[in-house]
Structure formats: C-alpha cells, structure tokens
Design a protein around this nucleic acid. Structure first.
Lengths: 93, 93
DNA sequence: CGTGTAAGGAATTCTGACACG
DNA sequence: CGTGTAAGGAATTCTGACACG
C-alpha cells in the first residue's frame, strides 16, 4: 500500500523520540550516522529527522553491535546488498 | 495490518514537524487542542507529540474552518459520532 | 471566534573535544 | 572502537496575555 510506505519512510521524528523508542543514547545514534549506517534528514535549521524505518534499522544495528559485529562490517554488508540490488536492476534493463 | 495501525496512530511528531506538514501555525494547532478537536500526547517534560492520524485530522479541521464551520460544531460532530459508535458497541453485547 | 504576536523560561539539539581502552 | 560526558550556543516548545473584532 502506498500510504503504508509513506508512514514508514517519512522522516518526521526528532532525536528525543528516537532515543525513547530505541533505548539508545543520542551519542550512539549520532555515532552510527558518522559510520554511515543511518541517514536522517535535516531541517533547514539542522535538526535531524528520522522515520519509522530508521527506528527499525537502528534496533537492528544495536543488536548486531551487541553481538560483536563492527560498524564497518555492518556498513560493508549494507553496501554489498545495495550493489546486488543495482546489478539486478541493471540486468533487467 | 497491525503494523500499519502502529505507524498511523503512534504519537511521535513534535510541533515543528506538524506545522511543516499541515501548513498551520503553532497557534492554530494549540487552539484546536483547547477546543478539544485534537489530542496530542505529552512527554514527561510537557512537549506535545502528534501522530500521522492527527496530521490528517488537523488538515480536515482546517478545511472545515475555512468553510466557515465553528470549532464547537466540529467538536459536537465528533462527540455525536463517538456516541453512535458507543451505542452500536453496547447493542452488540 | 480564531489567530497573530512579544515575553520569558524551560527543554531539546547540535558540534567538537576529552576520556577510556 | 564505541560510548560517556561537560560545554556553550542555537533552535524549539510552552504558557498566559494583549490585541483585533
């Protein structure tokens, strides 16, 4: 459903809400951003905005880190997956 | 879908995001709250939190007010609709 | 009635840095 | 490496009030 997608992907939450929903600290959330694991939008004045999808991704990241996975491994995995998707899309054309 | 409901009804947005999404002023949004047309949650520190559902409701309210409908008429309509739902639920028992 | 605005305080967010390890 | 924290400034939010009509 298109509406469902809009709700899930729209970047609308501020940091506070995200810490409440994920249980992570601001520090952790900002650090994962510097490591290119998460990509919030910014308002014109510079405050971050997250989506429900980001929340889910953050909880996934947190779980992996607890299991001892390094942020760069998580990032490499993310890039590999993206590459795969791009290759498949290229083949389709 | 249960997930869809969660995204739509969860109170997660702050005032700024709501003004951006609805085009309404903070003043208008707070006023509609005093008139019991909209019911944001509050964090422990007192800041309001709105859901996607609230956004849609606010845009509906704004449209009615532009058409000259009074806030108390909108509220009375809301109460009537709720009463109707309650009566139907009562009958079902 | 519905909305704008200035006022002043409180809560939020941001960045860059020091710390530990 | 991943996270905590104190620092200081900027942006956000809140309430109660005055204003217009």
């Amino acid at each position: 459903m298109k509406n469902n997608y809009l709700y899930r992907e729209k970047k609308i939450m501020t940091m506070k809400t995200v810490t409440e929903m994920t249980g992570l600290s601001e520090r952790q959330i900002r650090y994962y951003e510097t490591q290119k694991l998460i990509f919030p939008e910014r308002t014109c004045s510079g405050t971050r905005r997250y989506s429900f999808s980001d929340i889910e991704r953050l909880m996934d990241i947190a779980e992996k880190i607890e299991d001892g996975v390094l942020t760069r491994e998580i990032r490499d995995d993310l890039y590999k997956r993206r590459k795969k998707v791009l290759i498949q899309e290229t083949k389709r054309l």
